[in-house]
């Protein structure tokens, strides 16, 4: 099962490597990892996408909690949540393809944020499967470059992960 684990951790040098090191040392997999400071500059928010059965996920959350720099851990995929990922795609866009790509981007609610005579950069946010679907609809030889942020997520409603 795919899980999204959110952490609050001390914004200290080395905190990221403690988390990453834990995953590699214990053989857990990381599909994606994002991290940035929060409104409180001493605290970072990290989102990890991982896979594992119930016992593995339980161990992951326990082991993360055990790290001294980690303040809070929440498996947000356990609850009603919103997941978003940002993607930037650079595509070859010439002749009649320019229209087709623009139409496709519109369907997926992407925005073209850079235009040259031969290329577009499309910005798109959404849950990861939507981004996957968009890429699947682009012809392979159109794609020059894909940059994805990895998913981030937040709980719906008033409940939140905070200090």
């Amino acid at each position: 099962m795919r899980h999204i684990i959110s952490l609050l951790l001390e914004n200290e040098s080395g905190a990221l490597s403690r988390v990453a090191g834990l995953f590699s040392a214990r053989g857990y997999n990381i599909e994606a990892l994002t991290v940035a400071p929060t409104e409180d500059p001493t605290v970072s928010r990290m989102t990890i996408v991982t896979r594992g059965d119930e016992r593995v996920i339980e161990q992951i959350t326990k082991q993360l909690n055990k790290l001294i720099d980690v303040i809070k851990v929440l498996d947000i995929s356990e609850a009603d949540h919103i997941e978003r990922e940002l993607m930037l795609v650079k595509v070859r866009a010439k002749d009649q393809e320019r229209e087709e790509i623009k139409r496709l981007a519109d369907i997926f609610r992407g925005r073209i944020i850079d235009v040259t005579a031969s290329s577009y950069v499309i910005e798109m946010t959404g849950a990861s499967p939507k981004l996957d679907a968009f890429l699947a609809n682009l012809a392979k030889d159109w794609i020059i470059e894909v940059v994805r942020s990895g998913p981030t997520g937040i709980l719906r409603g008033e409940r939140g992960l905070h200090l």
């Binding site: 016992r55 339980e58 055990k66």
Partner: peptide, 11 residues
């Protein structure tokens, strides 16, 4: 005392 020791190897 360590929650991660519990149900790690044996449920």
């Amino acid at each position: 005392v360590d929650p991660s020791s519990i149900s790690k190897n044996v449920l």
